[in-house]
């Protein structure tokens, strides 16, 4: 009898451990995957390719080029903003500063803020803006470049709204989303950057994603 009781206890114990294991959150891969048919050894096979961030090349506040290659072996949080934005941007920036401070010693995490008013937000304007926020280009890139390319990248790759709109405060319409991108250019999370509770979730998810990339 004793042995059975022990066995039951052991089963329950390891069962509980296993359920803890499975309860560990794994971040989804977002976006519509592409199905590609391949012919291998005369047989047709379908391959699923995840949605990824398209190639881009923009200048940051140091006048240095930033591309997908800048983030090899890194993960990053992206957002869309403009420096003269009177509406949600200051809240978004104060929330990004929370993330910046939270991961002060984490070299594998970067922040990327795309300007949707790149004609006004030149390298010099972005430089002043970054300086006023007191943040380093080593960890936080503010990007400017061709306006339409930025809008297209926002809509197609990051799946967020970004456009000129006379009706919106400051003349631009944009989402307040923060986007979490993994080291393979895949979107792993979307968060409302104007809501502190959502940013708490993002901070937790960043830890999960960093752990995922850890060599086991």
């Amino acid at each position: 009898m004793k042995v059975t009781a022990k066995a039951i206890f052991a089963i329950l114990f390891f069962g509980a451990l296993l359920s803890c294991e499975t309860a560990n959150k794994k971040l989804p891969v977002l976006g519509r995957p592409q199905l590609i048919e391949k012919v291998i050894d005369g047989q047709t096979k379908t391959d699923t390719i995840a949605h990824t961030i398209n190639d881009f090349k923009f200048l940051n506040q140091d006048s240095a080029w930033v591309t997908n290659d800048t983030f090899i072996d890194k993960i990053y949080v992206a957002d869309f903003f403009f420096t003269s934005c009177p509406s949600i941007c200051p809240i978004m920036k104060s929330q990004l500063i929370r993330i910046y401070d939270e991961f002060e010693n984490e070299d594998r995490l970067k922040l990327v803020s795309y300007s949707i008013d790149p004609e006004y937000d030149t390298v010099v304007v972005l430089r002043d803006y970054a300086d006023a926020l007191g943040v380093s280009s080593h960890r936080w890139h503010f990007l400017t470049g061709d306006k339409n390319e930025i809008y297209e990248l926002g809509e197609i790759s990051y799946m967020v709204a970004a456009a000129e709109d006379a009706e919106s405060p400051g003349g631009f319409l944009h989402s307040g989303a923060f986007l979490l991108v993994d080291s393979q250019r895949r979107m792993r999370g979307v968060y409302d950057g104007t809501v502190p509770d959502q940013v708490d979730v993002l901070i937790a998810d960043i830890r999960i994603l960093l752990a995922e990339n850890d060599p086991k």
Binding site: P86, S87, I88, I91, S94, I97, A132, L133, G134
Partner: peptide, 12 residues
């Protein structure tokens, strides 16, 4: 939105 709910502003 800009000056903060508690009037704290944003950095510099």
């Amino acid at each position: 939105n800009c000056h903060g709910r508690e009037g704290e502003g944003l950095q510099q």
